[in-house]
Design a protein around this nucleic acid. Structure first.
Lengths: 204, 204
DNA sequence: GTCTATATATTGATAGAC
DNA sequence: GTCTATCAATATATAGAC
């Protein structure tokens, strides 16, 4: 495959991400994607003969990106530093790659038909491994004893929320508060939530 | 409108909830809904002449259900009891009404085109009111000082996650752990998260 | 490789018999 | 109120000229 071909494919995939993440697979048309990509529909179909093939490519690339932040959590690091860094990385992904997050959420809502195998095998294996790391930290008394799986779920949920439910977050915060400060506020809030919860500090 | 008519409409709305929540608006066909409802397509269209009208009805009913749990949080109650109850109600909704949760998530992912007005007005007003309640509790030193808006967001995110990302949760927990214990585990975990975070208890 | 024109399939909605 | 038959619009995909 030539360099030109690869570039064209990348333009199409970028346009498809834009459209699929906003309207879902069925809600998106090749016409829309072609327009965003700046080419005609038959031209787009010259590079990707099937609409499904575009989606498939996006999904397989997505999963690699998706597993990366958790993989970086190191067993030999300081527990609080590692967890805080993980939360930060996930929140940065929600801020910088909201379309990927929404594409993933769309797939989940439909029962993950295209990636259920990778979820059940690769993702499960990774989470099992990191849950074991968390359990070790608990055994060592470095973090509170709790359910490591649900801990990971809650980090996913709280961070991805800022991408997937972005409209709602902005509407609720209103014009002033929604204006770009929300990710910094979220970072501060989530750090406190996961590290201390709502228990008030004794006055000092 | 007769009783029969109302019943038929309810059957259609129930079927539409099933289909829309799983495939999204554009991904659902009237044929599918009609089949689930156990009637022919023209017959269904006799009661709802437009596909959009079915969706509109579901959305307006949904929003009422959706605001209820937060409305019940009372300023004159004990803060920890009120917050814990709220989390519990939201988690029960994720468990008992996952389709409504997914319908809502679908709408959010698309930028809430049909309900943005209610989000910006009614939901915002309700959250503003409850954020004020939380702020008062913080001023009184009853709960830790934190961002009340992001606190509410994180309760939404963590509880709805068990409905919206159900496939993933079950796949990661595996056959044994995914088997029905997950909501009880989540309830225990979330209670600890919000009340104490990960700070380990001093040994004693 | 890119275009115009078009084939084919799906689907929302209607017509008209019963 | 419910059905069969069908229309009209949309959307995926292909044919064939350039």
């Amino acid at each position: 495959m030539t360099r030109i071909q690869r570039e064209k494919q990348d333009i199409i995939l970028e346009a498809a991400l834009e459209v699929f993440s906003a309207h879902g697979f069925r809600g998106s048309t090749i016409d829309q994607i072609a327009e965003v990509a700046g080419m005609s529909k038959p031209n787009l179909l010259y590079y990707f003969p099937k609409k499904e093939e575009i989606h498939r490519r996006l999904m397989s690339e997505l999963l690699v990106t998706w597993l990366a932040p958790l993989q970086e959590m190191r067993a030999d690091g300081d527990p609080f530093v590692e967890i805080r860094s993980y939360i930060r990385r996930k929140l940065e992904m929600a801020r910088d790659f909201p379309r990927q997050s929404r594409l993933f959420a769309n797939e989940m809502l439909r029962g993950a038909p295209h990636i259920i195998d990778m979820i059940e095998v690769d993702l499960k294996a990774l989470v099992d491994e990191k849950a074991q790391v968390l359990l070790t930290w608990m055994d060592e008394g470095k973090i509170a004893r709790t359910d490591p799986y649900h801990l990971i779920f809650s980090i996913w949920a709280t961070t991805q929320h800022y991408a997937d439910f972005d409209v709602q977050v902005r509407a609720v915060l209103g014009k002033g508060r929604g204006g770009e400060g929300r990710f910094e506020d979220a970072a501060r809030y989530l750090e406190q939530l996961f590290l201390h919860g709502l228990t008030p500090k004794p006055k000092g």
